[in-house]
Nucleic acid binder design. Structure first.
Lengths: 194, 194, 194, 194
DNA sequence: TATGAATGAGACTTCATTCAT
DNA sequence: CATGAATGAAGTCTCATTCAT
């Protein structure tokens, strides 16, 4: 809807905070409105319904997440560096925004199937970015070209997601960034041409 | 509670079916009772509350899942074979039981944080089994001992989980078992001592 | 639904009272439940939704209304007496039940188009009863057979309905029954064969 | 209020259209404003509130309705002709304006009791016009003077109203004007002096 | 005059759980 | 042990109206 109005972002940011603090199922529209400093009804001038807040939240935040990773990756010249950048950026983005990490890793997964399908759509560009890097690595003879691209993508994304989720569930009490290099090596070795 | 009575299992099996068919949020206690062929109130003679059905379901089914993997692994003599067996058994167990796959990979994740923490407890023995195999591989000098055990476990579990979830989300339409060997090689290479 | 249970009728009777006292738009489900002496949720064991209460109310009460008129008319031997009986019964039924008169003449007409279409269905047997009497009168050469049956039915029903509505709007402060004979004569003269 | 301004009539005409097309309960102020080509707030410069739009609509349109019937009746010299003119004009006015017919016969009846009482006030001159004609008929010895004026008025208005409502509910698919003569005869006979 | 973004009260319905039988 | 009728708390969304510009 009217995405350029400041209230649109106010509401999305309020939703992130409220969901992170209260959990998905205790995040009533009225709570989000209060945190955003608007009336309940105002929410519905900017969002079709409650689910639309969550979808928009994920789209906006994931959009930023993905494009800042893409921007950073463009400055790297080979697949190995690009993969490291992807891992480091993935971790750093979520480390920088504790609330967002809780919301994307834990709370939003409690949503219903329809919302999760939309979430998958939003993630598609990110998975394609992973595919591009792996393909580039294969073209550079860094990675084994006989491997199944989909499996590799699932390994990389599955590992990143699982490590972040564990970190969030452990109350983010260790330094996720420090794991990046080791994960990177695991991937590079696993994918290496023999 | 009275776990040895036949109705206990009737109700759990009914819950798996109802959740797989209707989704987590459309699985009312009354629907489960009907499918199990008992009255609504009878549920509460065997389970403390609705959440207890789900926790018990996960405990029972995951218990079987884990012990049959453990049993099979005991017949293998080295870490490499054990890891392959773990992957193959993980996939075959869920391939054999479509409904259970849907419930564990998609529907139960919509539950609230507390239930998910209990689910994590149930998974602990499985994660420890992975740790054991990896440790054994390190002792055999098959795997690089300098790697962080937790990270490896997260990579292995994260990858298995992500591949199964993708397969379920794609309506289980390809043969998951065929991917096992390639995944296995990715792990072996990734973890190999250099 | 479970129409034979006493609560079904309790709720319908409560609805008549609540609507008559508060008006259609101030008759919340919770008010009806309270008057019926049941919990809000109990309403939904007997009725699909709020509209279903109103439809059922009209069906039940109109059903009684129509069949008691039919029963009385059966005891009369000619169209002239039958028409008088119809008028007198129409008035006496509503005179006897002040609340019902308010609900059917004023409040239920504020409902939406769908509900009004269902109301029309319920009224059909009554309109057919009028048609039968008029047809009988034509067969007896009491009424002019060249008249349009539909127009006559609309004149009779329209007049009865308008007189009752006026009486209700005037707070039922005059004796409606006393008008029956004069209305009857108007009809008999209007319809008479020349 | 400021009744002579063009926007006053714009808004009323928009209200008729919007209500005829969407039904009473789907006719929000914002929809009427949009159809009228003004801002929501502008409505409140010309009308006290939403109800005031509807009352004014009825007053304006009914005012025209009644005065054109009065004008036509003035050209007739006796009660019998006047009554026929009233019936024919009643039908022709509503036949000419389909939207208005829907609004007055169906949609406005869904309004609350207070609005309907105001509507009754607006109708008063029309009912008095009927009374005048009937009284004139009695003075001419055309009608039976012993009849109750109120009952006759209710019969005439009730019949006209019921016939129009039925015609509207049947999607105005037959020619209402053709019924006028027969209705007229029914009245004349019914009221005739014996 | 005219605008239109913002307000906020209010109600229907679901469903986990209980308890008298 | 088993039943199932009854309970009642709780949240999303609409829309008439206002008021700063």
């Amino acid at each position: 809807m009217k995405k350029n109005r400041p209230k649109y972002n106010q509401i999305i940011d309020a939703a992130v905070e409220v969901i992170a603090e209260n959990g998905y199922h205790s995040s009533q529209v009225s709570k989000i409105a209060k945190k955003a400093g608007v009336a309940d009804g105002t929410i519905y001038l900017y969002f079709k319904n409650k689910e639309d807040i969550l979808v928009s939240l994920f789209q906006e935040k994931m959009g930023e997440f993905i494009s800042s990773i893409e921007d950073e990756i463009k400055t790297k010249s080979n697949a190995k560096q690009k993969l490291l950048t992807l891992i480091e950026m993935h971790y750093s983005q979520l480390t920088k925004n504790h609330h967002l990490a809780i919301v994307t890793q834990l709370e939003l997964r409690q949503s219903n199937k329809e919302l999760r399908l939309m979430i998958n759509d939003v993630l598609k560009p990110y998975l394609e970015l992973i595919d591009q890097i792996v393909q580039e690595g294969m073209d550079e003879n860094l990675f084994d070209s006989s491997l199944d691209l989909r499996i590799i993508r699932q390994m990389i994304f599955g590992t990143l997601d699982e490590t972040v989720t564990n970190w969030v569930m452990n109350d983010q009490k260790y330094d996720l960034m420090k794991k990046a290099k080791e994960i990177h090596e695991l991937f590079i070795n696993g994918l290496a041409q023999k």
